[in-house]
């Protein structure tokens, strides 16, 4: 991997983060009412408001406020919650940790099913196995999460009583119980991911299996297994890396419904709470942390892709 490619990707990631921080900061600025009125309520006296504005530095020019805020963020200080009076950074990071745990488990589970299913469907294209995988995939894609979540909850928690219906237990407290609580959320979000990743793997692999170099590999006398694993899969799975990285974004911000149904205090749920309370520092921290995680994951995906497909670095 060329150093210049890495530097270029790093630079782009940093650039993205700066733009995101600007947007996050700007959006909270255009919301009606400032932090002081939110803090003290609409009936506060002008003197009290002025005192708070002075304390929070709200009278300084916007770019000074931005610089102040960004400087704090770079030192790990995301400000103090207007709602609870606690530092928002640690709360959001903790919530991110829970969301990431869900994301990693869901992606791991999803890949362990989606890859074999996609490969099976591609290799047996047009036959019963392919049609079955396709049918199940479409059901998975078309069911909204709250439906699958409710169905899983009914089946595994209510009727069978195998798993707890809602709640979250930290890993450090009781690993077994923690995992038991995560099974239903992981299952729910995986259903949709399995569906679209297996479709993706199938169509990519079908294309690759029709290329000249696969034909050449067969005509070199390589075994069917070697042709599929060594020549086919490697090329077919490359685009999947990008898709999985995009899914991380969905798993961080887009699964609020799932977090809500299973009472999982992930970052999406924290952000909703912050928005409802108009807790500006918390909104800023949550949005920025989400965007940063997403950028870093996509950076990692770009690097992995370029490492596996050397042509990429020449773009």
């Amino acid at each position: 991997m060329s150093l210049s490619y890495l530097l270029k990707r790093c630079g782009l990631t940093a650039y993205t983060l700066i733009v995101v921080s600007l947007i996050v900061f700007a959006v909270t600025q255009v919301l009606p009412g400032d932090a002081a009125t939110m803090l003290l309520g609409e009936n506060a006296t002008p003197a009290a408001l002025a005192a708070v504005r002075d304390r929070l530095g709200l009278d300084a020019p916007i770019w000074v406020q931005y610089g102040h805020w960004l400087g704090g963020v770079l030192q790990g200080d995301f400000g103090t919650s207007l709602r609870t009076g606690q530092a928002v950074g640690p709360v959001m990071v903790e919530a991110l940790g829970r969301s990431l745990l869900l994301a990693v488990l869901a992606i791991g589970f999803m890949l362990s099913l989606a890859l074999p299913l996609g490969i099976l469907a591609a290799v047996r294209r047009g036959r019963a196995a392919d049609l079955l995988v396709g049918f199940v995939s479409y059901i998975g894609v078309s069911l909204p999460e709250f439906v699958t979540a409710t169905l899983f909850g009914l089946l595994f928690a209510d009727w069978l009583q195998w798993l707890p219906a809602t709640g979250y237990v930290p890993m450090t407290e009781n690993p077994a119980s923690s995992l038991a609580h995560l099974v239903l959320p992981v299952l729910t979000v995986s259903v949709m991911l399995i569906a679209h990743v297996s479709r993706m793997v199938r169509s990519e692999l079908v294309d690759v299996l029709h290329t000249d170099y696969i034909r050449a590999a067969r005509l070199k006398g390589l075994s069917a297994r070697a042709v599929l694993l060594k020549h086919g899969l490697r090329n077919a799975l490359l685009p999947t890396i990008t898709i999985v990285a995009l899914d991380v974004g969905y798993l961080l911000g887009g699964v609020i419904v799932v977090e809500e149904i299973f009472a999982l205090p992930g970052i999406g749920r924290q952000l909703i709470v912050a928005i409802e309370a108009r807790d500006l520092p918390a909104i800023q921290a949550g949005a920025l942390i989400m965007a940063a995680t997403y950028s870093v994951v996509n950076f990692a995906a770009d690097v992995a892709y370029a490492w596996l497909d050397k042509r990429i670095q020449y773009d």
Binding site: D212, R215, G221, H231, L308, D309
Partner: peptide, 23 residues
Amino acid sequence: AALRGRRIGMVFQDPGTSLNPTL
């Protein structure tokens, strides 16, 4: 499969597409 590449080989029209781009 045991015979191809060992006792009978083939050279293709377009070397640009008959080689695997990632190996």
